[in-house]
Simulated scan of single mutants.
Amino acid sequence: MRLENKVAVVTGGARGLGQAMAELFASEGALVVAADMGDLAYENPRVEGYKLNVADADACKTFADYVLEKYGKVDILVNNAGITRDGLTRKMTDDMWNLVIDVNLKGVFNLTRHIGPAMQTAGSGSIINISSVVGEYGNIGQANYAATKAGVIGLTKTWAKEFAMKGAQVRVNAISPGYTMTDILKTVPQELLDKFAAQTMLGRLGQPEEIAKAALFLASDDASYVTGHNLSVNGGMRL
């Protein structure tokens, strides 16, 4: 029960990586608020669903106020919500660019700008930003996505400094998953999945539960001296 009596917020928590993290956190004793634009794809008595568009700044303020009033605190924030709108740069439209920036980068800022300072006032907390192997190394056809995920790493390092000011024990870290078998990859042709798997040292793709376990480590007191770090969980991916 590494998260006993903790309150956790997980964005994009309805399915995929978010579901894996929310349910694992709940099994470790946390009360979890899973914020997502869609309904939860699961039922868990320790997970509360909340409809939220992280790109909506006002909605994020309302949500943060709601959680802090209802539970009195937020111990863990996982900024996981994200989308893709892929295309080569010469073919990428303004809408494709702006939508990914609004959700993947601005959305992380919209919520953390309220919950981070609340953690700082309380004196402790753990923020985990979900980046990507694409944010570390880039990828053809994903200029918008790569820009947001690289930006998330920059936010992580900045907030690790800002929210620890005046002695607050607020830790901010990022996780950069490799190719992981979520719903997004289920639409990818098998020959491409095999190619991705062959690029890893372990010769396989990741599972959502493996990313969730990394998040559990960073959320828990086991990582009490880890902050400002980007944890690559990619099976030893070679690009």
Rank of each mutant, 00 (worst) to 15 (best):
E48M: 11
G235E: 04
R238D: 09
I211Q: 03
V133N: 10
E4C: 04
A35D: 02
I211R: 03
G38T: 12
V172R: 07
V100G: 08
K149F: 06
P177W: 03
E4M: 11
G18A: 07
T227R: 03
G236T: 08
Q169N: 15
N5P: 09
E191F: 14
E48A: 15
G13N: 00
K213P: 03
Q199W: 06
A150Y: 01
V233T: 09
V7R: 05
N110H: 14
S126Y: 00
A122S: 15
V78Y: 06
V170S: 07
L185Q: 02
G16V: 00
N230W: 01
M119G: 11
R113W: 09
I140L: 13
E23L: 07
N139V: 05
V103S: 02
L239A: 10
V32T: 08
S232N: 14
T112S: 15
A57T: 12
G72T: 01
G206T: 03
N139G: 13
L192Y: 12
D194R: 11
K73Q: 14
E136V: 15
A22Q: 01
T158N: 14
N110V: 10
A30C: 10
T93Y: 13
T227D: 01
P208T: 01
G18N: 04
Q190F: 07
A30V: 04
L88Q: 12
R171C: 04
S124W: 01
S220Y: 13
G135E: 01
E136T: 13
T112K: 07
K61G: 10
L99K: 15
L239F: 12
F163V: 09
D102T: 08
N104C: 08
E28T: 00
G72S: 01
N144M: 07
G203Y: 10
V54N: 04
A212C: 03
V67G: 08
M237I: 15
A143C: 14
A219C: 08
G82I: 00
G167H: 04
R90I: 15
V133S: 13
P189V: 05
N110T: 12
A219M: 05
V152N: 08
T89F: 15
V172Y: 02
G178P: 11
A57V: 11
L31R: 15
T121L: 12
T148L: 11
A14C: 10
R2S: 00
D56E: 09
N234H: 14
L218W: 05
D194P: 06
L77M: 08
A26E: 03
S27D: 05
F109A: 10
L40H: 05
H229R: 12
V78N: 05
L185N: 06
R2V: 00
E69C: 09
Q142N: 13
K157S: 07
G206E: 00
E48D: 11
K157P: 03
A223C: 08
D95L: 14
I153F: 04
V74G: 09
G154R: 11
I127R: 02
A34Q: 00
V74A: 07
L88S: 12
M92A: 10
A214I: 01
T84F: 06
L99P: 05
K149Q: 08
V100C: 09
I128G: 11
K73C: 11
K61P: 05
D65T: 14
T62L: 13
D221N: 14
